[in-house]
Design a binder for these strands. Sequence first.
DNA 1: TAATTAAGGTCAAAGATAGTCAAAAAGGAT
DNA 2: ATCCTTTTTGACTATCTTTGACCTTAATTA
Lengths: 149, 149
Amino acid sequence: MKISDIIEQFIIDIIGEGEVADISRNELASYFRCAPSQINYVLQTRFTLDRGFQVESQRGGGGYIRIERLAIDKNPYLYSLLETLSEPISYTRLLQIAECLVENGIMLPEEGALLTRMTSDKALATPSNNSDSIRSNILKETIIHLIKR
Amino acid sequence: MKISDIIEQFIIDIIGEGEVADISRNELASYFRCAPSQINYVLQTRFTLDRGFQVESQRGGGGYIRIERLAIDKNPYLYSLLETLSEPISYTRLLQIAECLVENGIMLPEEGALLTRMTSDKALATPSNNSDSIRSNILKETIIHLIKR
DNA sequence: TAATTAAGGTCAAAGATAGTCAAAAAGGAT
DNA sequence: ATCCTTTTTGACTATCTTTGACCTTAATTA
């Protein structure tokens, strides 16, 4: 398992049922024998706003990093999401959003799984820009999804 | 015997009674003293959807290739559907299929609704052929769908 | 208050995997 | 023998992770 995944799990365990974890970057880094900036990498790739986390920190003596799980209020959240969607969106980001939607009971787990499956790079790859072909690919992915469960 | 056949057998043996094999491309290649891309060749020619396999992978540190066997025998209807999907498919047809899937309890009604929403002409319309943009549109439709229910 | 110490942040390079594509090689069929 | 197909290889590319040098900020101390 990757060190980043281990650190991610460690932080999630700290948060536990609560909603906040306070950590010391250097302590964590030395505990896991990695570069301190590795912690930043984990925070930047895993504890994103898309996944419903917020990170704040303080430098200097007595500094800290606080990771907070945000309470999601359905409609405001959805509307703010909508606003970001005039931009293209990477699969990685979509994955985090879908996870967040499911975690917060906005989607059924089945729907989240469907969503991620239908929008995988594989599902959306097309040479020509043909809606029917894209849709066909998406359906194909959907069926694989159904087969597998 | 060809090295490709040997590698194929090796992977099938790993899967065994289970349904998934996780391999490292470089390890496997060096074990069989072949070019790493030989592994891709084997996957592309032997572990195809037609034969009931699905392959996914991750690059970078801690990367892997996962080969999964799908239960063909338990899902004759879905597999026959799959076979028709090398062709483009109209929205009207998709609608009928989705309805059928829901009627027969293969999908939840929520999933059927999601599927049709995500593959509407509106969701799939794009000027440039960019997966991210398409995906963004699909997500947008999904969210509207969630807001409205 | 200035200097020192103790945090944390940034960014780019290095490392670790996997993917693609086309050329070369090997087999096969006629 | 020649042509066609399949297999094998390797150069180049893409992506994700890990590390380290250098920068910024806050608290403490001289």
